Deep mutational scan, measured.
Amino acid sequence: LQLFIKTLTGKTFTVEMEPSDTIENLKAKIQDKEGIPPDQQRLIFAGKQLEDGRTLSDYNIQKESTLHLVL
């Protein structure tokens, strides 16, 4: 599923993930694309901070959802 990642600077980029992927996987993918170390990434969806060990489906993140990346 394609997700939109929006940064505080207003930049938006996309990543391609599976619902079974963990937040950790997502942070690694963001590191590949943007060079931001996972330990500096905080991801927010629907007002909640996402925890590394959980999956996208745990948070009911669907295709074309927008996640906010806070550094």
Rank of each mutant, 00 (worst) to 15 (best):
A46H: 07
D21Y: 03
Q2E: 12
M17Q: 03
F4M: 06
M17E: 01
G47W: 05
T66P: 04
N25R: 12
K11R: 14
H68K: 08
E18S: 09
I61Q: 02
K29E: 09
L56N: 01
D58L: 03
K29H: 07
N25M: 04
E16H: 11
Q2F: 13
I44P: 00
V15M: 05
E24C: 04
D58H: 09
P38N: 13
V15Y: 03
K48C: 04
V70C: 04
Q49D: 15
I44Y: 14
Y59P: 00
D58G: 06
I5H: 00
F4W: 07
K29A: 11
E64Q: 10
A46P: 01
V15Q: 02
K33A: 11
Q49S: 06
K27D: 00
I23G: 01
T22I: 06
K33F: 08
Q62L: 15
G47S: 06
Q41L: 08
F4R: 04
D52C: 03
K11V: 13
L56V: 07
L3F: 10
G35P: 02
A28P: 01
K48P: 01
H68W: 05
T12D: 12
L67T: 03
F13C: 02
K27G: 01
F45G: 02
D39H: 10
G47K: 05
Q40K: 11
P19C: 04
G53A: 05
I23M: 03
T55G: 04
K29Q: 13
L26P: 00
I23S: 02
E34C: 03
T55K: 14
L50S: 01
S65K: 03
T12M: 06
L8P: 05
Q49V: 06
T14A: 14
L3H: 00
D58K: 03
I36Q: 05
I36K: 02
Y59N: 03
Q31A: 09
Q62F: 08
E64I: 05
E34W: 05
S65C: 03
N25G: 08
E34M: 14
E24Q: 14
T9M: 15
E18P: 05
Q2S: 14
L69Y: 02
V70T: 15
K63H: 14
K11P: 14
S20H: 12
I44K: 10
G10L: 05
V70A: 13
E16R: 12
K29W: 13
L1M: 10
I44W: 05
I36T: 14
E34V: 08
Q2L: 06
I44R: 07
L43V: 10
I44L: 11
S20Q: 13
Q40S: 10
F4H: 15
G10M: 05
T66C: 04
E64W: 13
G10P: 02
S57Y: 10
N25C: 04
V15P: 00
D39Q: 13
R42A: 14
K33P: 01
K48T: 14
Q49N: 14
A28Y: 10
I5N: 00
L43C: 01
T12H: 08
E64N: 10
M17R: 01
L56Y: 01
T66S: 07
G35F: 06
Q2K: 09
Q40I: 09
E64D: 08
F13T: 03
N60W: 03
L56H: 01
A28N: 15
D21K: 05
T9E: 15
P38I: 15
G47H: 08
S65W: 07
K6H: 08
Y59H: 03
I5Q: 00
L71K: 09
D21V: 03
Q41S: 04
I44T: 15
K29S: 05
Y59S: 07
H68C: 04
L26C: 02
N60Q: 04
T22W: 14
K27N: 01
E64F: 05
R54P: 07
E64K: 06
E34L: 15
D32M: 08
Y59K: 01
L69A: 02
D32I: 05
E64Y: 13
E24W: 15
L71F: 12
M17Y: 09
D52L: 08
T66D: 06
V70W: 09
Q40W: 09
T12P: 10
P37W: 14
K48F: 15
D32H: 08
H68S: 14
E51F: 06
T9N: 11
G53S: 10
D21W: 03
Q41I: 08
K6R: 10
D58F: 12
D58E: 05
Q62V: 08
P19D: 11
T22F: 07
A46N: 15
D52M: 08
T55P: 06
Q2I: 13
K63E: 13
E64C: 04
K27V: 02
G35T: 03
I30V: 12
D39N: 11
K27S: 01
L3M: 09
I30H: 00
L50E: 00
L3N: 00
D52G: 07
L56Q: 00
I36W: 14
L67F: 10
Q40D: 09
G53N: 15
Y59V: 03
E24R: 15
D21C: 03
E16A: 14
I5A: 00
E51T: 04
P38Y: 13
V15C: 03
I36R: 03
F4N: 06
T14E: 07
D58P: 01
R54L: 14
S57W: 10
T9I: 13
E51L: 09
F45N: 02
L8M: 06
L56E: 00
L8K: 13
T7S: 15
I61W: 03
F45R: 03
T55M: 14
G53P: 11
S65M: 13
D21S: 13
R54G: 07
N60A: 13
K29D: 03
T9S: 13
L1Q: 06
P38D: 08
D21F: 05
R54S: 15
H68T: 10
F45L: 07
F4Q: 09
S57H: 15
K11T: 14
V15W: 02
T55C: 03
E64R: 04
L50Q: 00
H68L: 05
M17W: 09
Q31F: 10
H68A: 05
G35M: 08
E16D: 07
G47F: 04
K63A: 15
